[in-house]
C-alpha cells in the first residue's frame, strides 16, 4: 500500500474535518454531564443548529451571523430541556430523547424551503507561507477556522473545569448536589448554565455540518453524529483532552479506512466501517484502565433529579 506525503496530508486534513463536529458537540455535553445533567438531545440540538445556521447564512450571506444564530438556537432547545428537567423535574433520559425527536422534526419543518439551496463553502484559513509547507502546512495552518476554534474551546473547558472556582462549583454540583446546595451554591442556576453551554456547542457543531462540512441543508443531515458525541463523552471518561483525542481518533480511522478501500486492500468494507468505533473504544478503554479513576471522573449525581426541599 503506497502512502505518499499527499495522501497522508489529505487523511490528516480530513481527519480534523470529521472530528470537529464530534468534538464540539461532545465538549458541550461533557460540561452538561459534569454538572449532573444527562442531555440525550444532542442530535436534535445539532440539527436545529444546522438548519438555523444554513437559513441565516443563505438569507443574509453572513456565515458568522449564521453560527451565532445556530448557537442561540441550540441554547433555546437546551433552555426548553432545562425548563422541563430542572424546573419541572422531568426525567432527563426521557426528556432528552423527546428533545432529539422534536429537533429532528422541527429542523425538517423549518428547513423545508431550504432543501436544495446551494451555498458556497467557507474558505479555509490558509495562513500565508505557513500553509505552503508540505504536510505540516495544510494540516496545521490550512484548516477551516472552526477547527482551531474547537481546539481552543476544549482547552478553555479543560482550564475552566480544573483550574477555576466556577469549574470547581460545577463539578461539586455534579458530584453531590445536596452538599453543594447545603453550602450555598445555586445547584439549579449552575446546571442551567451548563446545559445552555451544551446547547450552544451542539448548535455550533450543527452549524459546522451545514456551513463547512457539507454546505447544504437536508433533513437529518447529522446522520447520528449526536449519538457518537454522547458515546465519546463516556469513553473519554469526562476528560476534555481525552475527548479531543477520541474525536480525532474516530475521525482519523473513518477517513483512513476510506483511503485503504480506494487503494484496493482486501479487507471487508463492513469491518472497515466498524473500525472507527472499535479503535476509539479500544484506545479510550486502554488509557483509562483504572476502574476507580473512571468512577472518580463520572459525576455521581448524573441524571438525578434535584429538589432543594428534600
Amino acid at each position: 500500500m503506497e502512502m505518499d506525503l499527499g495522501t497522508t496530508a489529505a487523511i490528516a486534513t480530513a481527519m480534523a474535518r470529521a472530528a470537529t463536529p464530534l468534538a464540539l458537540a461532545a465538549v458541550g455535553e461533557l460540561v452538561s454531564e459534569k454538572s449532573g445533567v444527562l442531555n440525550l438531545g444532542v442530535e436534535g440540538m445539532m440539527l436545529v443548529g444546522a438548519v438555523s445556521a444554513f437559513a441565516v447564512t443563505a438569507t443574509t450571506g453572513n456565515p458568522v451571523l449564521g453560527m451565532v444564530v445556530a448557537m442561540a438556537a441550540g441554547m433555546l432547545m437546551a433552555l426548553l430541556f432545562g425548563f422541563l428537567t430542572l424546573g419541572l423535574l422531568a426525567n432527563q433520559v426521557a426528556t432528552g430523547l423527546a428533545l432529539t425527536i422534536f429537533g429532528v422534526g422541527l429542523s425538517a419543518f423549518v428547513g423545508k424551503g431550504f432543501v436544495g439551496t446551494p451555498l458556497p463553502g467557507l474558505p479555509s484559513l490558509d495562513i500565508p507561507f505557513l500553509s505552503d509547507i508540505p504536510l505540516i502546512g495544510p494540516v496545521f495552518f490550512g484548516q477551516d477556522p472552526l477547527v482551531y476554534v474547537s481546539v481552543a474551546i476544549i482547552a478553555a473547558v479543560s482550564w475552566f473545569l480544573n483550574r477555576t472556582r466556577g469549574g470547581l462549583i460545577l463539578r461539586a454540583v455534579g458530584e453531590n448536589h445536596d452538599a453543594a446546595h447545603a453550602i450555598g451554591h445555586g445547584v439549579i442556576a449552575t446546571r442551567y448554565r451548563a446545559v445552555l453551554f451544551g446547547g450552544a456547542m451542539s448548535g455550533l457543531a450543527g452549524a459546522y455540518l451545514s456551513l463547512v462540512y457539507t454546505p447544504m441543508w437536508i433533513e437529518n443531515m447529522s446522520a447520528g453524529r449526536g449519538w457518537i458525541a454522547l458515546a465519546l463523552v463516556v469513553f473519554a471518561t469526562w476528560k476534555p483532552w481525552r475527548l479531543l483525542l477520541g474525536a480525532y481518533l474516530f475521525g482519523g480511522v473513518t477517513i483512513a479506512q476510506l483511503h485503504v478501500q480506494g487503494l484496493g486492500v482486501n479487507i471487508p468494507s463492513q469491518l472497515m466501517s466498524m473500525l472507527p468505533y472499535l479503535a476509539t473504544i479500544l484506545v479510550l478503554v486502554l488509557i483509562s484502565r483504572d476502574a476507580t479513576r473512571i468512577r472518580l471522573n463520572a459525576p455521581a449525581c448524573i441524571g438525578k433529579v434535584f429538589h432543594p426541599e428534600r
Binding site: 489529505a10 447520528g224 453524529r225
Partner: peptide, 25 residues
Amino acid sequence: VKVIWVNSWYDPGKEREAAETLIAQ
C-alpha cells in the same frame, strides 16, 4: 472503476469524505 463502500444509504459527511478520497486517488 474504483469503488468505496460507505455502508450507509445516507450520510452526507461520509459521502463527502469518500468523494474526496476517490478524487485524491
